[in-house]
Amino acid sequence: MSAETGLSANMTLLLIMGVLYACGIYLLLERSLTRVTLGLMLLANATNLLILVTGGYAGLAPLFTKGTDPKDYNDPLPQALILTSIVISFAVTAFMLGIIYRTWILGRQDVIADDTEDRKVANTPSFDAEDDAPIPDETTEFPLGSGADGRGDAHDGGMADDGAAAAAVVPSSDAVPSKGAGGVVAPPEGGSRGVDGGRA
């Protein structure tokens, strides 16, 4: 039944809608936050126009008066939908403006920054030092046989030595001669040679 009523959309509105969509998408793809916000606003308004067009033909305001043909009324539902969507886009715009202000406070700029963690993951080499290192032949921590104790001690001792050396550096840098590292009799000139002695 809708050859002349239901499907006849207003061409001007459609054209405006198309232009708004095009500009909105263009702005949305920018890196500047202000332009992104403007883009979102244009897109929201284009969508509002679209909903308006879906309401069909223009007509009377839908206030009931006796004796009016129901087809003379405008369809009120799309307008209610638009009203809701306007309120929502208002909230979003306000929030985006707050965000823009905050970025300006934080960085004196309003462009969207890269995700640093993302870059880090992307730049990770496929070789992982821990996962991909060649596995030593001897993987157990409790090797059998006579060398077991010696090996364990050597490992722990190595760690302890590092610790001792590191600890030795600290007092010796205070240049207190009598505290030369290890059991070595330190010459009175200073700590540095004492540390060397301790390592040797």
Partner: peptide, 24 residues
């Protein structure tokens, strides 16, 4: 803020798509 911008823009675009679908 950086993450929020991405999130907001993507969400708004998806909501607009939904709204367009409703209109259609």
């Amino acid at each position: 803020i950086r993450a929020g911008v991405t999130y907001v823009v993507v969400s708004v675009v998806s909501s607009l798509l939904f709204l367009i679908a409703i209109a259609m």
